[in-house]
Amino acid sequence: MEEPLRKELIVSAIENGTVIDHIPSTAVMRVMKILELEKSKNQVLFGMNLESRKFGKKGIIKVRDTFFEPIEINKIALVAPSASLTVIRDFKVVEKKMVEIPDFVAGFIKCFNPKCVTNHENVPTKFNVIDKIEIRLFCHYCEKITKKEHIQFI
């Protein structure tokens, strides 16, 4: 791990699994929910308000024996665009990358339009991400755009 020792002491190292680092502290719980880690049977370690040279304060999540598919992990890019992902095997870093904003998101963001069918019937939301910089989500059902500042999570 390339992290300073001080942090390793706070959130201990894992033998095998995934480290999600550089999460905004306020987004840690949201990331846990999006990845459904509260239902995980594996060990989940997390820290908030850790010191970061880059970000001031940051959050970190370490999940033992769990490896995520890109489609799954990229969902968190909407709440933690700066997050980095490190895959650990035998205490060694085997892969390190940044999360990427996906083309399509389903199921965890509410449509901004109060008249949308997803807010009236039991219909999971689906959006095409039409602008990855400003974050604009085009609803598959009502065809209205939910902007970044209006994003609410289900």
């Binding site: 339009n113 008249k115 949308c116 069918v117 997803t118 009236h120 019937e121 219909v123 609803c139 598959h140 059902y141 009502c142 065809e143 209205k144």
Partner: peptide
């Protein structure tokens, strides 16, 4: 309700024609 016809088309076994969804 907006998007209702799209949703209907996804659950229906026959084609849907949208005659206005909000």
């Amino acid at each position: 309700i907006e998007g209702s016809a799209k949703w209907a088309s996804e659950v229906s076994s026959v084609p849907i024609i949208n005659a206005g969804d909000g």
